[in-house]
Amino acid sequence: MRRMRKLFGALAAALALAGCSSSLQPVDPAPAGAVQQPQPAGVGGGEPSDTASTSSCDPNAISLRPSGSLPAPGQFPAGSRLKKIHDRGYLRAGIDQNTYLFGFRNLTTNQMEGFDIDRVREIAKAIFGDPDKVQFKVITSKEREAALAGDEVDVVARTYSVTCARAKIVDFSAVYYTAGQRVLVDRRSKATSLDDLAGKKVCAASGSTSIKKLTGYPSKPVPVSVPTYADCLIMLQQGQVDAVSTDDTILAGMVKQDPNLKMVGKQITEEPYGIGIKKGDDNFVRFVNGVLQQSISSGAWQASYNKWLRGTGEEQPVPTLRYRD
């Protein structure tokens, strides 16, 4: 009997030992695995700069001088692009609906608004006498050249930087605003410029000059490209990128939507904004420049600037339009 009891004792001890080491762990009831954050559609990486030599032109004086005063609305020579647009009944404009201050939808009125949209409406007013005769077509930064070349839109007013490489594919109006690339970070961030963001994820729109600048930048940030700048803002808010780097004007619109962000660093580029026009109709380019000239001299440009951009960054003087003639 005693021997038996000893044997059972030893057996129980052995079992307990075995139990402790393996099977007595509480079971994880619902392993969730790694959490994947939702992402905007079409997130990509860096994009190389255009290979075209940059010294071949002066982006600030690339366009054609208006010829005399503007024709009255509707009075256009037969066969001209202006006549065709007038006959169609509306102007087709490539814009963005997510760039606060420049091109966005006012959700109360459901109308498109912004600094770029004001330029489009001025052109429509000069053609039709009615600033509302516009079909707004939302396009991404990347689609701007193709939309013009494919004749989907007549003009593109979408924070469109004039570059010599682009000028080979599309025509540009005179420069009506000059922005510069800066950096947007969280208010608590210690970064003071792009130089402090080595190895950090920095967001910009696909096909923009900004993403190209980021891709080759010496401090080697990790470029993240998205279809629109609003996607950059939400990725910054969700902590999926560390910074957004693009034109200060666009960044200013983001700060207005989220005061927890701040713009840092100097302008690292100069971004001269022009209105993109399908290549091949000089008279139309001259007409658009005439509209811009009139807007500046009538004070409309200033009013538009005051409405959207005053106080968001460095004060901009009224531009002086320059031409190659």
Partner: peptide, 20 residues
């Protein structure tokens, strides 16, 4: 929340939601 404040970011959030 963004739409109610008139911020266009709302559209981007909605697109992200729709993508998900």
């Amino acid at each position: 929340a963004n739409n109610r404040q008139g911020f266009p970011t709302g559209g981007a959030y909605l697109r992200e939601a729709s993508t998900l």
